[in-house]
Design a binder for these strands. Structure first.
Length: 429
DNA sequence: CTTGACTGCCC
DNA sequence: ATTCTGC
DNA sequence: GCAGAATGGGCAGTCAAG
C-alpha cells in the first residue's frame, strides 16, 4: 500500500470511530465492534438511536458581526436567539419512553417529568421516535416571560415526582432535529432539519417554543437582531449555516456554530466592564502550582470607605501578565492579613491578602445576587451582595487609584439595570 | 435534627 | 462558562 | 483552527460533625 493510500485509510477509519463515538458514546460497544467486525461495520452496529445521547454541537465565540461575515464568507446562514438555560436533548423511543440528556450527556430525565409530560402534547401520533435539541429555560407562565438561569438552577435535580408541585416551570426552546421516525437527520443541512422540526412539532405556550430566528445576512440586520435578543432576555445569538457545511456531524468539527454575545464585542466597550481592586490571591494548580493563580477583587463603597469583595478572577491573563502580577503583588503583601476595611465572607477567603494598590479592568457577562460576596450588600438585598458571572481580566488600570474603583452603588445600579431584573423585579427572600 | 464543608454539574 | 497556549 | 488546561459563580445533593 502506498504512503498516501495508507494515510487515506487511516483517516477514514478515524472518522468512522469518531462518528460512532459521537452517536453512541459507549466505548465497550465500539471496541467490541472493532474487534469482531472491524471499523467498516461501525455505521451499522454503533449508530444514533433514540434513547442514547448524542454529542451535542457546540459553538465558537465571535467578537462581532464582522467576524461572522468573515468566517462564513459567502455561505448563507441564520441567526437564532441564544437562550440562557440548560441544554436539553429530548428523546422519544419506539416504546413511548422519553428521556432528556444534558450537554454532558447526563441523563436528566428524572429532573424533568413535568417537561416530558408537556412535550408529549406537542407532536402527533405519526411521530414514533425522535431526538431534538433544545434549551430548557425557566419560565413564568402567567407573565409569559423567561426567567434567569439562576432561577432555573434552583429546580430539584433528582426524583422530581410527577405529581409534585414543581416550583420552577420550564419551557423548552427547540432549535434542531437530529432524528425522526427511524431516520437520522444529522447528515442533512440545517434548513432541512429545521423545516422538519417545525413541521412535526407544535409549539404550545408554556411547554414548547421554537428558537426565535432570522435569516437575513446583512450587518445591520444581525446587529439589530442581537440588540433585540438582549432586550428579550437572551444571552445573544447563535449563528448557523443553512445549506453548505450545515450538517450536525460532530466528528468532523464539534464547534460548527458561532455564538455572539454582547460581552464578546471588543469594539466600543459594549458589555459590562468594571474597574476592581485586587485584594488577595489563591495559589494555583497544575501549570500554575506555586503561583498566585486566581485573584480576589473588590469594588469600593464610598459611604463605608471599605472594599467589598465581588468575585475571583483567574482567566484573561497571559503568562506574562501572570508572572508580572506575581512579582508585583509579592511586594504588596498585607503584613496584617485581612484589612479591617475589606468586606468579605468566610467562604471567599484567599490564601494571601494584599495592600489595595492596583486596579484591574474586568469584563463580565452578568451580575448576580451572591451568597459568597458582599459587593453592594444592603442595596438590592438586605444580606447578600452582588457577584459577576464569567469574570475575566482585560487589563491593568494604572490610571486609577484603588478608591477610584467602580463603586458599590454603581454595581447595584448595574445589577438592577439588567433586562431580567427590570422585568421580574429583584429576587425575593 | 441542623449545619456546614465538600462534590458534581449547570452555565 | 472564558481565555490562553502549544501544536 | 483545534484540543487541552488553567480558571470563574452558583445551585442541589451528600455526608460527617455538632
Amino acid at each position: 500500500m502506498s504512503e498516501d493510500k495508507y494515510r487515506e485509510e487511516e483517516d477514514k477509519t478515524q472518522l468512522l470511530i469518531r462518528t460512532a463515538h459521537c452517536e453512541m458514546p459507549n466505548l465497550a460497544k465500539i471496541v467490541n465492534c472493532l474487534i469482531t467486525d472491524g471499523a467498516d461495520a461501525l455505521p451499522e452496529k454503533c449508530h444514533m438511536l433514540p434513547g442514547i445521547p448524542v454529542e451535542p454541537m457546540l459553538a465558537n465565540p465571535t467578537k462581532g458581526v464582522s467576524e461572522i461575515l468573515t468566517r462564513f464568507e459567502d455561505l448563507e446562514f441564520t441567526s437564532e436567539y441564544k437562550y440562557d438555560g440548560e441544554r436539553a436533548q429530548v428523546h422519544l423511543m419506539d416504546n413511548g419512553t422519553m428521556r432528556i440528556y444534558s450537554r454532558n450527556l447526563e441523563n436528566n430525565t428524572s429532573k424533568y417529568p413535568d417537561v416530558i409530560d408537556k412535550i408529549r402534547q406537542c407532536f402527533s401520533p405519526e411521530v414514533k421516535n425522535f431526538i431534538i435539541d433544545a434549551e430548557a429555560v425557566a419560565y413564568d407562565i402567567e407573565a409569559k416571560r423567561i426567567l434567569p438561569f439562576q432561577v432555573l438552577s434552583t429546580r430539584k435535580r433528582k426524583n422530581v415526582e410527577n405529581g409534585d408541585e414543581v416550583k420552577v416551570q420550564v419551557q423548552l426552546f427547540a432549535f434542531d432535529l437530529l432524528y425522526l421516525n427511524d431516520k437520522p437527520y444529522v447528515t442533512k443541512p440545517f434548513h432541512t432539519r429545521r423545516a422538519a422540526l417545525h413541521k412535526h412539532f407544535t409549539p404550545q405556550e408554556g411547554s414548547l417554543a421554537f428558537a426565535t430566528s432570522m435569516d437575513a445576512n446583512s450587518v445591520d440586520e444581525i446587529q439589530a437582531f442581537l440588540d433585540k435578543s438582549i432586550e428579550d432576555s437572551c444571552e445573544g445569538l447563535m449563528i448557523k449555516t443553512l445549506y453548505q457545511d450545515a450538517t450536525y456531524e460532530i466528528a468532523n468539527r464539534s464547534k460548527k456554530w458561532l455564538k455572539l454575545k454582547k460581552d464578546y464585542i471588543e469594539d466600543g466597550g459594549l458589555g459590562d466592564s468594571f474597574d476592581l481592586v485586587v485584594i488577595g490571591a489563591w495559589y494555583g494548580q497544575g501549570k500554575r502550582t506555586g503561583w498566585y493563580a486566581a485573584y480576589l477583587l473588590a469594588c469600593y463603597n464610598e459611604d463605608e470607605e471599605e472594599y467589598q469583595a465581588i468575585c475571583k478572577v483567574g482567566t484573561g491573563m497571559t503568562n506574562e501578565f501572570l508572572k508580572d502580577s506575581n512579582e508585583f503583588f509579592a511586594k504588596h503583601l498585607s503584613e496584617s492579613g485581612k484589612k479591617a476595611y475589606y468586606r468579605t465572607t468566610e467562604s471567599s477567603k484567599p490564601d494571601v491578602w494584599f495592600e489595595p494598590v492596583q486596579v484591574w479592568e474586568i469584563k463580565a457577562a452578568d451580575l448576580s445576587i451572591s451568597p459568597a460576596y458582599l459587593a453592594g450588600v444592603g442595596e438590592v438585598h438586605p444580606t447578600k451582595g452582588i457577584s459577576l458571572r464569567f469574570p475575566r481580566v482585560l487589563r491593568i488600570r494604572d490610571d486609577k487609584k484603588p478608591d477610584e474603583a467602580t463603586s458599590s452603588s454603581r454595581i447595584a445600579e448595574m445589577y438592577s439595570a439588567q433586562p431580567l431584573v427590570q422585568q421580574n423585579g429583584p429576587p425575593r427572600r
